[in-house]
Design a protein around this nucleic acid. Sequence first.
DNA 1: GTCAGTGCAAAGAATTTGCAATTAG
DNA 2: CTAATTGCAAATTCTTTGCACTGAC
Lengths: 141, 141
Amino acid sequence: MTKPKQEPLIDLCRQRGLRITGQRRVILQVLDAADDHPNVEELHRRVGQREPGVNIATVYRTMNKLAELGLIERHMFGDGRLRYEPAPDEHHDHLINVETGEVIEFRSDEIERLQEEIAQKYGFEIVSHKLELYVKPRKTR
Amino acid sequence: MTKPKQEPLIDLCRQRGLRITGQRRVILQVLDAADDHPNVEELHRRVGQREPGVNIATVYRTMNKLAELGLIERHMFGDGRLRYEPAPDEHHDHLINVETGEVIEFRSDEIERLQEEIAQKYGFEIVSHKLELYVKPRKTR
DNA sequence: GTCAGTGCAAAGAATTTGCAATTAG
DNA sequence: CTAATTGCAAATTCTTTGCACTGAC
């Protein structure tokens, strides 16, 4: 959805000096191909389709490493499991359909601005933020 | 902070037909007295000060029951543990100081309105939402 | 060659659950 | 009386870790 073409993760990893192993290559491909917000179990499943035998601990470790480097973003939506998405060029927020679990990305410059204002009012600066709208389809009568 | 006097939880529980046991009474007192967002371990600690011997499983079960009934709200801030606050009369959002862990409540009608607008634009209605600003003290100068 | 990365199984951390005993209503 | 609640320990679920081995650079 909000997914402009950008440099593949594998190149970013090389730049940062990570070793490109077979397992890692597949994990990065899966991440690049994802346009949703999979959790580790789902990632592991997708990796397994391309290359069986990759241990889930490796997926966990890779995600942690990528998150440390800021190459992916971690989320915790309603279900209590970590989910990931390749770091977007521009920040966006999430709208979660509670009936289907579907996640839609959106962005509101106006809300971004108001957030800054609020933080400032309290004497802080924003490190990061998270706005999640849990929604259901509108009954159009 | 944003904590207008309201009906004690114990009365709300009676109205909903929950049995008031000794353990539950203490837990509810602790919740009523809290003006922060404690996790279960912290609640259990506070309960233990008033009445030793209450099992932490009881605290978990009670919090789940209260949340089901909408008498308290669950949050998951940065640290991956569930936290609770008595359900406020009016919705508010949170500003979390990442350096101290302190949580400040705030409300912006304008942001609320923009959220509605966005949900509507996508054809949804909001079930609930969560806005969290992770902040740090502003370096003045 | 060296050290980051991996698999595996075991450990952790947070939360839930089965069950027998207790107790509020 | 009896169905809800509790304590306790065991089970679940998700994630991390120790360690010996492998392989990228």
